[in-house]
């Protein structure tokens, strides 16, 4: 299957601060790709590089085979871009902004936009600046849907939205994606919404990529094991290739691992940890994400 986006060996610094090193990922045509990570791990940085607003210290992104630093106008028509915080031209009205964008995109679908606008309690003459954050997000979404791009780049669509709007947003996206083999690149820090939405994910940590996989593999292979121990025991755990992450409380703990239960048990025995009742518990995607990246 052909790749719509290919990012190779991206490294970026802000001043001397390393954001990440040697990040590579591909986005397959027709897939929904999630870039997950806590705040400050470089999600927006990646989007900026992808859109040509940032030149990485090294590495390159290709979009539709073109260098993202120099996207020709024709390629730009194929990319829909949602800015973090649903930023749009808020000095325009609902109808002005539609009129404005329609001039740029040959496949413009006016109905798609107005269909969405009808659901909002807004008038065509209303200025974006007078709308609520949720309403603005729908305007931004409507514009992208009307543009009918082959690739959608959505930078933190969830920012500032309540649950209803987030759900609405994703429902529309799902519809759109399933209809005609479109590719979506989405970043978010609210993981639970994406659970049934994204297929491929890259999880970013500070300074590096933690994981690049599919949601299915991640959920199948990444496990949480809880165990108990005596309150007055001193337990010390380290991250290893078995223990990807762990949490210790007063008398119980959790180990996050890609390994099977048997291997974890073996590891605990080897390291002479006095555990009791080791058992695998089920996780949501968000649990798994936090399990992997930690709470801080």
């Amino acid at each position: 299957m052909e790749n719509v986006v290919e990012c190779k060996n991206l490294t970026h610094y802000y001043g001397k601060r390393l954001i990440y090193e040697d990040m590579s990922f591909n986005i397959k045509k027709g897939s929904i790709f999630g870039l997950l990570g806590k705040n400050g791990t470089g999600k927006t940085t990646t989007i900026n590089i992808l859109n040509g607003y940032l030149k990485p210290a090294s590495g390159q992104c290709l979009i539709f085979g073109e260098d993202s630093q120099n996207l020709p106008p024709q390629t730009k028509t194929r990319i829909g871009f949602l800015m973090e915080g649903h930023i749009q031209y808020n000095f325009m009205t609902i109808s002005q902004i539609e009129k404005f964008y329609s001039a740029f995109f040959p496949k413009w679908k006016k109905e798609a936009y107005y269909e969405l606008m009808e659901k909002l309690e807004v008038l065509p003459e209303q200025k974006l600046s007078t709308m609520s954050c949720g309403q603005r997000s729908q305007v931004a979404l409507g514009l992208i849907l009307a543009q009918d791009p082959d690739l959608m780049v959505l930078d933190d669509y969830s920012m500032g939205l309540d649950a209803g709007y987030r759900r609405l947003f994703l429902d529309f996206l799902k519809d759109y994606a399933s209809s005609n083999n479109k590719t979506i690149f989405i970043t978010s820090h609210i993981i639970q919404d994406l659970e049934d939405f994204v297929q491929d994910i890259v999880i970013l940590d500070y300074r590096s990529v933690l994981l690049s996989t599919t949601v299915k593999d991640f959920r199948d292979n990444f496990k949480q094991f809880n165990f108990e121990f005596d309150e007055n025991m001193k337990i010390q755990l380290e991250k290893t290739d078995v223990v990807n992450n762990f949490e210790l409380f007063k008398s119980h703990g959790a180990i996050y691992s890609f390994k099977e239960k048997a291997q974890v048990e073996k590891y605990l025995q080897q390291t002479k940890i006095p555990y009791k009742n080791l058992k695998q518990v089920s996780m949501s995607l968000e649990d798994a994400f936090i399990g992997l990246t930690g709470k801080y």
Partner: peptide, 18 residues
């Protein structure tokens, strides 16, 4: 001013023109 607040210029530069 409206272009640089909230980096709106990114939208403008994303328009399919050079």
């Amino acid at each position: 001013f409206p272009e640089v607040t909230e980096s709106r210029l990114k939208l403008t530069l994303h328009l399919p023109l050079k």
